[in-house]
Simulated assay, not measured.
Amino acid sequence: MLAAYAAKFDADNPIAALEVGERPEPEVPEGWVTIDVKATALNHHDLWSLKGVGLAEQNLPMILGCDAAGVDPDGNEVVVHAVISDPAWKGDETLDPKRSLLSERYQGTLAQKVAVPARNVVPKPAGLTFEQAACLPTAWLTAYRMLFTQSGLKPGDTVLVQGAGGGVATSLITLARAAGMRVWATSRDEAKRAKAIDIGAHEAFESGARMPERVDAVMETVGQATWSHSLKSLKQGGTLVISGATSGQAPKSAELNRIFFLQLRVQGSTMGTRTELAELLQFMATAGISPHIDSIFPLADARDGFAKMNAGDVFGKIVFTV
């Protein structure tokens, strides 16, 4: 079957480590099912895997990808939940110390077929195309958990989204606006600031700009480059929710004095549960919102999609059709 996979690692040029070609169809352990993939989406996680971050060399070659929408063996249209927990684990899958994501220990979704535990499939809403649904299991689910599980925000509160443009950031803007929050966003790029307003932000500011007032919560995915600004933008008792650090994880200052003196809360957030994925799908259907797609490529042209993400010229999700 056709797949996009990591054959080696290259920390400096991850695209050089990517292969697009034939791979064996997935093995299907007991309790798992094979999904015929119709569409799959790209995440920064896939670029990090090509660099050798989070993927063990003994697991190469590894089909990349966490996101997929497709058809199960019974002909049902489904969305794949990418968090694979231990079969004995009960409760929140993201807290299972033995958990992994598709494309880490198990072959991923950038292929014609993917095998997943039967419990890891969720019905696809009829109102979403396969391309739209494929955007949801990582970026949109991460955003949903950040906003509705981890932040403590409520309708009417003000939330700042750092780094408008990426998959999680655009998801956060749209979800927060649909939930009745006042949404501010930042970006270095003027065009991305304009797009942020188009998809729901009330205001958009240049990265590092002083906010008109301090906010109830900051959604942080950038890390090192925006860390200090995020903490300085919070009101007393505010919350910073962090789910990534695409610019690095070593800010010049941890701002510890500010954190304890203003009683700020720093909350980590990783992916989301199968239940939260089902809730997200229902919320989007009820609110009448759909994912933002930057571009769509056939899987055979996966290298072009990876190159586009690596260059940073992205607003929304990159999707591959199968």
Rank of each mutant, 00 (worst) to 15 (best):
E25H: 11
L60T: 03
V53Y: 15
M62N: 05
D74L: 14
W48G: 05
G21K: 06
D67R: 00
V20R: 02
D36T: 12
E30G: 15
T40I: 09
K90C: 07
E77D: 15
L50A: 05
I84T: 00
D74Y: 06
D92K: 05
E93A: 13
E27C: 04
V28T: 15
R23A: 09
L64F: 13
L60A: 05
P29K: 10
C66I: 09
T34S: 14
D67T: 05
V80P: 02
V79H: 02
G54M: 07
D72M: 02
L47E: 04
T40F: 01
V33G: 04
D92W: 04
N59M: 12
I84Y: 00
H45Q: 11
A41R: 03
N43K: 01
E25F: 09
P61I: 02
P29F: 02
E57S: 12
A82N: 13
I63E: 00
T94F: 11
R23N: 06
V78L: 12
V78Q: 02
K38Q: 11
N59V: 10
E22W: 14
P61H: 06
I35M: 12
V71N: 07
V80S: 00
V80Q: 04
R23Y: 12
V78T: 11
Q58A: 07
D74H: 14
W32N: 01
T94Q: 01
H45I: 13
V20D: 03
A68L: 02
P26H: 01
P29D: 03
E25M: 05
G31E: 13
V37N: 06
V37M: 07
A68F: 09
D74F: 07
D46N: 08
M62H: 04
I84C: 00
A88V: 10
H81N: 09
K51F: 09
E30Q: 13
T94L: 11
W48A: 11
Q58C: 10
T94I: 15
L64S: 01
V28L: 07
P24E: 06
M62A: 00
E93T: 10
C66S: 07
P87N: 01
G65C: 10
V78S: 02
D92M: 04
A69Q: 00
V37L: 10
A39I: 14
K38V: 13
G54V: 14
A88H: 12
I84S: 00
N76E: 15
G75Y: 14
P73Q: 05
L64P: 07
T40L: 04
P26C: 04
D72S: 03
I35Y: 11
V33Q: 13
P26I: 00
E19F: 05
V80T: 06
I35W: 10
D92G: 08
V78Y: 03
P24C: 09
